[in-house]
Computed example of a mutant assay.
Amino acid sequence: MARAGLTAGRLTRAAADLADEVGFENVTVSALARRFGVKDASLYSHVKNLNELRTRVALQAAREFADRTGPVLAGRAGKEALVAFARAYRAFAREHPGRYAATQIQLDPDVVAALCADPRDPAPADDLRRGREMIELTYAMLSGYRLEEPDLTDAVRLLRGTFHGYASLEAIGGFGHPRDVGASWERAIDALHVALEHWPAAPDRTESTL
């Protein structure tokens, strides 16, 4: 019988908190059960397995990330939007390391589809929608730089690679130089702005007919 008071939503929120405390990779059904003082079997009435639990956390984390970064982009464009987005990104990664790690995993589309199709629990579908809106906002943020495809996607990947790499190194203390890490971050954003403003033209790949 399901433990009174336990729901999929409550378990997901608790698992996200646990991820921030001990690392997303250390979130297990057993660890979560201990948090509630119940046996593992009590959780399986609400989540099928560890994969589903981590997927739920990832979807929720994506929504929370969108809730943090989305509003800062409203009414902003160009460098102003870039700076606001970058600062919100770094703040989320620093304050919620486990949740942030969850946003980076590759989700099983079958598990996501099953969760989003369950009419008894609309949360996963709502979380997925908000997460996708965040991707759209990221592309919209770069519209001020007048980039078109495929340069637009290349630019998004540049930002993601820079932001994620920086956040990941900072999380493990990977910057040993005494130079202030926050100051280096701000300079990196300045450099990205310059790169976006002066995006190189795509090389002409047309083969010569001579």
Score class of each variant (00 low, 15 high):
Thr69Asp: 11
Gly70Val: 02
Pro71Thr: 06
Pro71Asp: 10
Val72Asp: 02
Val72Pro: 01
Gly75Ser: 08
Arg76Phe: 06
Lys79Asn: 05
Glu80Ile: 01
Ala81Glu: 06
Leu82Arg: 11
Leu82Lys: 12
Leu82Cys: 10
Val83Tyr: 07
Ala84Thr: 02
Ala84Asp: 04
Ala84Val: 01
Phe85Cys: 03
Phe85Thr: 01
Phe85Trp: 15
Ala88His: 04
Ala88Cys: 06
Tyr89Ser: 04
Arg90His: 12
Ala91Gly: 00
Ala91Ser: 12
Ala91Tyr: 08
Ala91Leu: 07
Ala91Pro: 00
Phe92Val: 03
Ala93Cys: 07
Arg94His: 06
Glu95Lys: 06
Glu95Tyr: 06
Pro97Ala: 15
Gly98Lys: 08
Arg99Met: 11
Arg99Pro: 00
Ala101Gln: 15
Thr103Glu: 09
Thr103Asp: 07
Thr103Asn: 11
Gln104Thr: 07
Gln104Val: 01
Ile105Ala: 13
Ile105Leu: 08
Ile105Val: 15
Gln106Asn: 12
Gln106Glu: 15
Leu107Pro: 01
Pro109Trp: 12
Pro109Met: 10
Asp110Pro: 00
Val111Lys: 10
Val112Gln: 04
Ala113Tyr: 09
Ala114Glu: 13
Cys116Pro: 00
Asp118Asn: 13
Asp118Pro: 01
Pro119Arg: 11
Pro119His: 14
Asp121Lys: 05
Pro122Arg: 10
Ala123Leu: 13
Ala123Ile: 04
Pro124Val: 02
Asp126Ala: 15
Asp127Cys: 13
Leu128Gln: 08
Leu128Met: 10
Arg130Phe: 08
Gly131Gln: 06
Gly131Asp: 09
Glu133Lys: 13
Glu133Arg: 13
Glu133His: 14
Glu133Met: 11
